[in-house]
């Protein structure tokens, strides 16, 4: 498994020779439990934002979203905590996933966090509250229900904005 091999990002491999499907690029696979653990910490950070009415946890979370959206969810501080402290305690098979779905979710989280921070900075309570709540709901759905944000949102967005 290639966690840290940047070459794997651009290499093309036919991973599915059967059933007449298209040739697909191969992307690094990561432990699928990592992003879900990250979502749990995200829920805590965004809940603190709302309960304390403070922009500090939101700002920190926004930075984590930015790292996750840019470099991948396996490079965030939360992923580091997962690898260092949580993963060694987990047993059983390691479920893997392509990095792209959780990376997409991090990018969506970043957009919500930016709007929430803009709301805070401009003193617009509704914007701050709604944008933070959306990010919190998405993170909670991911942590509690293994929600696939990319599955539900990406095609709808593409349908809406692309001819």
């Amino acid at each position: 498994m290639t966690f840290d091999n940047p070459i794997a990002l651009t290499s093309t491999k036919n991973e599915n020779p059967s059933s007449g499907s298209k040739v697909e690029k191969s992307y690094p696979l990561i432990d699928a439990r990592g992003p879900r653990f990250g979502a749990l910490i995200t829920v805590i950070m965004l809940s603190l934002t709302l309960v304390l009415d403070s922009a500090l946890p939101l700002l920190l979370q926004g930075i984590v979203f930015m790292i996750g959206a840019t470099f991948g969810p396996q490079r965030t501080p939360y992923a580091f905590i997962f690898k260092r402290f949580v993963k060694p305690r987990l047993r059983g098979d390691v479920p893997t996933e392509d990095v792209r779905p959780p990376q997409f979710a991090q990018a969506v989280g970043l957009v919500f966090a930016i709007f929430a921070l803009l709301g805070f900075a401009s003193g617009s309570d509704p914007l701050f509250l709604i944008a933070t709540s959306m990010a919190l709901a998405a993170a909670f759905l991911n942590a509690a229900f293994n929600y696939c944000l990319g599955c539900e949102m990406y095609l709808l967005l593409t349908r809406a904005f692309k001819r």
């Binding site: 599915n16 059933s19 699928a32 996933e97 392509d98 779905p101 696939c148 990319g150 599955c151 990406y154």
Partner: peptide, 21 residues
């Protein structure tokens, strides 16, 4: 099957269908 890049269950579905048929 309709799939997209940002979709973890798409891989699982692909593998499952290929296996079943």
């Amino acid at each position: 099957q309709f799939s997209s890049a940002f979709c973890t269950p798409c891989r699982m579905t692909r593998t499952l269908i290929t296996d079943v048929i």
